[in-house]
């Protein structure tokens, strides 16, 4: 039982970081119809920027805020320079251009910071809580809570503030938004900026947990199972599905993999299931698409392209 609890806490912490990434992807998709493969690149670049700011001696809070500002600028810059000229391009070309961005970002970070894993400076105080037989470091708690608070804060902003209203309007109906005087292309830029900033934060949090390396870019791909399970156009769905997949991965790693491995060793010549937790989200994705393509919180019909 304690094992289950321990796994649940770890899963929720990672899941809330997934949620941050996935919210960004959904935000961009809602506003501009672009599926952004470069979200992982923003996370990776964000982590490196935070690292550089921390190394420069900035207070962690300032460093994280600085990272989000830099990434926000980078996000709206990408939209202006790369995505806006491609408004009328076919879907596959738009997907490909975001993959190109990912390649460029990875190469740039490789040139600047090198291929080795870097130990991330301490952001949160060291130590751990042990309660009810489980053991959680402050780092996990802080990362999970920060990601969750920001996710909910972002959803509240999207729902209740003036800028959120404009965002929703621009995403729902471009022409109507233009007609009532909303500058839609500015809103799209803002959406990219916010989404990149959230990803930058998520990347930084992940780096505090697992260390800093180019592999952080891979986190962008986990966003796809998350957004399909949650519903492509639902921000709240992305949040719930992020937590769900975090839990699923954690339980797969801790409970399912060992059992499955024992079984396979006994009955076949396969002796390792490898990183099963990394592939389980994709299996769920396929299942979801076949059973309920609109996802848990999506609306049927409207978002099927």
């Amino acid at each position: 039982m304690t094992l289950v609890l321990q796994l649940a806490v770890a899963g929720l912490a990672i899941g809330s970081v997934y949620a941050l990434i996935a919210i960004g992807v959904v935000l961009i998709y809602k506003c501009s119809g672009v599926v952004n493969f470069a979200q992982g690149a923003y996370a990776m670049v964000g982590a490196y920027v935070s690292y550089a700011l921390l190394r420069a001696g900035l207070h962690p809070v300032l460093a994280i805020i600085g990272c989000m500002v830099v990434l926000g600028g980078l996000g709206s810059l990408t939209e202006r320079l790369v995505l806006r000229p491609m408004l009328k391009a076919p879907l596959v070309a738009v997907m490909m251009v975001t993959l190109g961005l990912l390649i460029v970002a990875r190469a740039a970070c490789l040139i600047i910071w090198g291929p080795d894993q870097i130990a991330f400076p301490k952001v949160f105080p060291e130590g751990a809580i042990s309660a009810a037989g489980i053991f959680v470091t402050y780092n996990y708690i802080a990362a999970g809570i920060l990601a969750l608070v920001l996710s909910f804060g972002f959803l509240a902003m999207y729902q209740f503030t003036r800028i959120g209203l404009q965002q929703r309007c621009a995403a729902d109906n471009t022409r109507a938004a233009l007609a009532i005087g909303i500058h839609v292309s500015n809103q799209v830029s803002i959406a990219w900026a916010m989404s990149a900033a959230l990803a930058g934060l998520a990347g930084t949090l992940l780096a505090t947990l697992n260390g800093l390396s180019l592999d952080l870019a891979g986190i962008g791909m986990i966003a796809f199972p998350v957004i399909v399970v949650g519903g492509l156009s639902s921000l709240f769905g992305a949040l719930v599905a992020g937590l769900l997949l975090g839990l699923l991965q954690s339980f797969t790693d801790g409970l399912l993999s060992p059992v499955l491995e024992d079984f396979l060793r006994e009955h076949t010549s396969i002796y390792s299931v490898g990183a099963l937790q990394q592939v389980v989200p994709y299996a769920l994705l396929v299942l979801m698409l076949l059973v309920r393509p609109q996802g848990l919180f999506g609306r049927r019909g409207t978002e099927r392209v």
Binding site: V35, F224, V228, L232, A283, P293, V305
Partner: peptide, 8 residues
């Protein structure tokens, strides 16, 4: 949706 399925 299909493109994402092929990703999986």
């Amino acid at each position: 949706y299909f493109a994402i399925a092929t990703l999986a």
